[in-house]
Amino acid sequence: MPQLPFHQVDVFSAVPYKGNPLAVVADADGLSDAQMQAIANWTNLSETTFLSRPADPAADYRVRIFTPESELPFAGHPTLGSCHVWLALGHRPKGAEVIQECGVGLVRVRRDGTRLAFAAPPLRRSGEVAPDLVAQIARSIGLGADAVKAAQWTDNGPGWVAAMLGSRTELLAVRFDPSLLPDTKLGLVAPWDKARDGDEAQFEVRAFVGRRGIEDPVTGSLNAGLAQWLIGAGLAPPSYVAAQGAALGRAGRVHVAKAGDDIWVGGDVVVGIAGTITV
């Protein structure tokens, strides 16, 4: 049975075990969809990725992203983790940036010192959230509708809708009831208060996914959509740090920066496991 390179990395943290884990299988050209889905189901991580040769000549590699149940067209921490592994295996990009091919098309990744950052892909859905859905979001997090200061669709593939609360303290106290919002991927964001929360980050983020209401530790795709909304609406400066994962005992840090027309979403990646997988 063939053995393929296998890594498990921690994304959006320079400290091991404090970010969001990702499994990466390289040289996956010969794997079938069923094999990839089975492996993703077995790792039981939020995402497992599979690296192969690109179909688009402009790309450096192709990545397919699987949850334990299905394939995603794009996700942020799998983008950075996959790129880190691709580079660690000795590959080099054709140009100054790494070009990743995935379900949403080509995604640019750049090296920013010790970090990697991806250019936020275009939103598939944006704009205001209907008042009845805002009220439903508020009920799902156990708050009154007036607690939601703003809401916006921020969908760049996974289907995110986002809501802003008034404070980090309020956000960290949220208890999400997925039965009240069963078919929506919900992102929550709130500003840090410098006097109370410090200045290590400017926003706190939480993400809830699926009918079981699973909380994602650190979420690149959500943070990309949030950045496009918050910076575009003047609710955030052109450069900021978002913290995510505190409610789960993690310490994720997402570094956001607007440069020209691009918004770059970056973070650190550390390797936890390196070896092979038998398929």
Rank of each mutant, 00 (worst) to 15 (best):
M1D: 14
P16W: 10
Y17S: 01
N20G: 07
A23V: 05
V24Q: 10
D29P: 10
G30P: 09
Q37R: 11
Q37C: 06
A40Y: 04
W42Q: 01
N44T: 00
V63I: 14
T67C: 11
S70V: 12
S70A: 15
E71T: 02
L72G: 01
H77C: 01
G90K: 07
P93T: 06
V98W: 10
Q100N: 07
L106D: 03
L106M: 04
R108I: 00
R110A: 07
R115L: 06
F118M: 13
F118Q: 03
R124E: 14
A130M: 07
A130E: 15
D132R: 09
L133M: 15
L143T: 08
G144D: 15
D146S: 15
G157D: 10
V161F: 04
S167C: 08
R168Y: 07
P182H: 13
P182D: 12
G187C: 10
V189R: 07
A190V: 08
D197H: 10
D199V: 02
D199W: 02
E204P: 00
V205P: 03
A207S: 15
G210E: 02
I214Y: 12
G225D: 04
A227G: 07
G232Y: 06
A242C: 13
G245V: 05
G245Q: 10
A246E: 07
A251L: 14
A251G: 10
H255L: 08
K258G: 02
I263T: 13
D268T: 00
G275Y: 13
T276P: 00
T278V: 13
V279R: 09
